[in-house]
Amino acid sequence: MVQLPDELALPEGFVPESPPDPPVTPKDAATVLLLRDGTAGPEVFLQRRVKGMPFAGGMTVFPGGGVDPRDADTSVAWNGPSPQWWARQLGCTEELARALVCAAVRETFEESGVLLAGADPGTVVSDTAAFADVRAALVSRELSLAGFLAGAGLVLRSDLLRPWSNWVTPEAEPRRYDTRFFVAALPEGQRADAATSEASDAYWRTPRAALDDWRQGRCGLLPPTWVTLTEIAECGSVAEALSTERVLTKVVPKLARRDGRWHVLMPGEPGHDGEGQ
């Protein structure tokens, strides 16, 4: 596991003065690292969340969000590794694996306009502009992913996703997520945008440039984002990132107060297995 730098601390107000007791049960969620090859190596799509958002407001993140119960709909037309395969990779039930993959596809489309689906198992949509109204209906929950794909005659392409990691929000926080991170290449012909109410800005950066932005105080990163960018920075191309074999284990950090700020303790660090947040 990548070691977090001492200067990486949570924003003020991120942790309540009185943590929930008992801790909140984490909500299942999916996050997707959209990648494309650039002149300086692979680039990742990042969004700066609106400051007023209840969770991670003002922070720079990857597209993603919580699982909708309808994401587990078995009627979704599916191509690629099966839900059974994904269940083994993600360490969960087949039903949850199906929901997580569908949530990854749905949230990526809602938040960036990138759609990991095609008219048949061998194709992927090259232009999603025609689905702008559908995108809004997905965001408002007027339409489910299964309903959208069926109506448009599209097949979900689970083969375009790869599992990357699994992070669980520390127990002291009032909003907790059990988040599976995926990686995917930007489909040819598609473009990622900032047309979402949840982000004030969106852009492409190499992982190293994004980490430099953080060091220079130009953006805020939560520990899972910082670690993931550091890991992706070791990949020389999108193909290398997609071919990297990953064994997922739940990373459940704890929090410690140092020098008046909340810091994250990673598994294996001194104090993680002792008393505290």
Rank of each mutant, 00 (worst) to 15 (best):
D71S: 02
L90Y: 03
R135P: 02
T74H: 11
A137V: 00
L116E: 04
G91V: 06
L100M: 08
T123I: 06
E94A: 05
A87E: 12
D120C: 10
A119T: 08
F109T: 00
G91Y: 03
A132S: 07
R70H: 15
W86Y: 07
V105L: 14
L116R: 01
A130D: 04
A119P: 03
R88P: 00
V105N: 07
A87F: 14
R98C: 03
A87W: 15
A104C: 02
A130R: 13
A132R: 10
N79F: 06
R98H: 02
A72K: 01
A103V: 03
P63F: 00
S112K: 05
S75A: 14
A97Q: 09
D133C: 06
A103R: 01
G80H: 02
D133W: 10
D73W: 15
A103P: 08
A87H: 12
W78C: 10
Q89R: 15
A119N: 05
P83M: 10
W85G: 01
R88T: 13
T123E: 13
G65C: 07
A77H: 14
G118N: 09
A77N: 12
C102N: 14
P121E: 12
L96P: 01
G113P: 05
F62T: 15
F131M: 06
A119C: 06
A129C: 09
P69W: 12
L116I: 00
Q84C: 05
A117Y: 07
D133H: 12
T93A: 05
V105F: 11
S75F: 11
G65A: 05
T123N: 13
Q89N: 11
N79Y: 05
E95Y: 01
L115P: 02
A87Q: 09
V134T: 03
E110V: 00
S82C: 12
R135H: 04
G91E: 06
C92K: 07
P69K: 08
L90R: 03
A129R: 12
V67M: 14
A99T: 03
T128S: 13
F109G: 00
A87T: 11
A87R: 06
L116M: 08
S126D: 07
T123A: 14
T123C: 08
A119W: 15
R98K: 02
L100W: 00
G65V: 04
F62S: 12
V67Q: 11
R88E: 13
P121R: 09
G65H: 07
L96M: 11
G64I: 04
S82G: 11
L90M: 08
L100D: 00
A99C: 04
W86L: 06
D120E: 15
A117D: 03
L90G: 02
W85R: 04
A72S: 15
C92E: 11
G91A: 04
L90H: 04
L96E: 11
E94M: 05
R70V: 11
A72I: 06
G118V: 04
A97P: 07
V125H: 04
P83L: 12
G91C: 03
F131G: 00
D68K: 14
Q84I: 10
